[in-house]
């Protein structure tokens, strides 16, 4: 049985191990069933082989209101490919059966989870090999039922915090957070940006007052420079839209080849800043 104490949480441990090597942990995001149903398993394997410390798998939804155009498009393509929540869990099982050991985190919207039943979903997700869960339209104040269910089935519930989050929300999120805390670096939706918003540094600082688990930064992250920048004050970087755009725009390569090229590029020289993990892992 997995133990939920800090050092035994798969996700936190994986981020921590990366930090110990002086690296910023990499958390790529890919929509399940994009660009085809059969792409997900090979993409995930390539991401694992080339430096992913945690892998985020997007559950497609008809109305993804936190997403920019790129991830909206990948969700739409996945839905057209016939992906639904059951199919997602099947694909996760397949990923595990092919030997992928990297912690897997699902990111999705609340309604598909509700439609299945919160408890049933958590049970089946844990069974399929999911380690963590992020729900884009479920703020901490509405998360009570999911907190209980994820605890019961030993899935980490990863809260999102924003530049606008007040002290109370930060405190509440840190209370139930497990795996890592996800800080949104922009005011806005997902999608590649030119620069990392420096204001997110303040948010990370506030979060670290309330929790010792790793802090990841996401939304807008697209380049190696961003990863290096983030590594100065946070533990992990999440990137999705830029990866998906890369897959969409280099159609002569297989999707998994594109995933490999993309993450290798981000992974290179990632340890140059000589990350002091003691600082982020108290």
């Amino acid at each position: 049985m997995r133990n939920f104490l800090l050092y035994h949480n798969n996700i936190a441990k994986s981020i921590h191990n990366s930090n110990k090597k002086g690296r910023t942990a990499l958390i790529p995001f890919i929509t399940i069933g994009f660009p085809t149903i059969d792409s997900t398993v090979p993409i995930v394997k390539k991401l694992e082989e080339n430096g992913a410390d945690v892998i985020e798998l997007g559950i497609p939804f008809s109305d993804p209101l936190a997403e920019g155009l790129t991830i909206q498009r990948s969700s739409q393509i996945a839905l057209e490919n016939g992906v639904n929540l059951n199919k997602c869990l099947e694909i996760v099982k397949k990923i595990r059966s092919e030997g992928v050991k990297t912690p897997l985190v699902c990111m999705g919207y609340y309604n598909p989870i509700l439609a299945k039943g919160i408890n049933k979903f958590c049970e089946e997700a844990a069974d399929a090999g999911i380690d963590g869960l992020i729900v884009a339209d479920l703020p901490s104040s509405e998360a009570k039922l999911l907190v209980t269910a994820t605890k019961k089935h030993e899935i980490s519930l990863i809260p999102l915090l924003a530049l606008t989050s007040n002290e109370d929300s930060i405190k509440l999120a840190c209370k139930f957070a497990s795996g890592f805390v996800y800080c949104i670096s922009v005011l806005g939706v997902t999608g590649a940006r030119k620069k990392v918003n420096s204001k997110v540094k303040e948010l990370v600082k506030k979060v670290k007052v309330y929790t010792d688990i790793p802090v990841a930064i996401g939304f807008g992250i697209s380049k190696k420079e961003h990863i290096i920048e983030i590594g100065k004050y946070a533990d992990a970087a999440v990137f999705g839209a830029a990866l998906i755009e890369f897959i969409l725009s280099n159609k002569k390569n297989l999707p998994e080849k594109n995933a490999e090229i993309f993450i290798r590029n981000l992974s290179k020289k990632n340890d140059q800043i000589g990350k002091n993990y003691e600082n982020s892992w108290r």
């Binding site: 209101l65 936190a66 609340y110 884009a136 339209d137 479920l138 703020p139 901490s140 104040s141 509405e142 809260p159 999102l160 915090l161 924003a162 530049l163 606008t164 989050s165 007040n166 929300s169 949104i184 005011l187 806005g188």
Partner: peptide
Amino acid sequence: GGQFVPETLMAA
């Protein structure tokens, strides 16, 4: 009812 929105909007 309730408030099922991205965290960024909660303060607003």
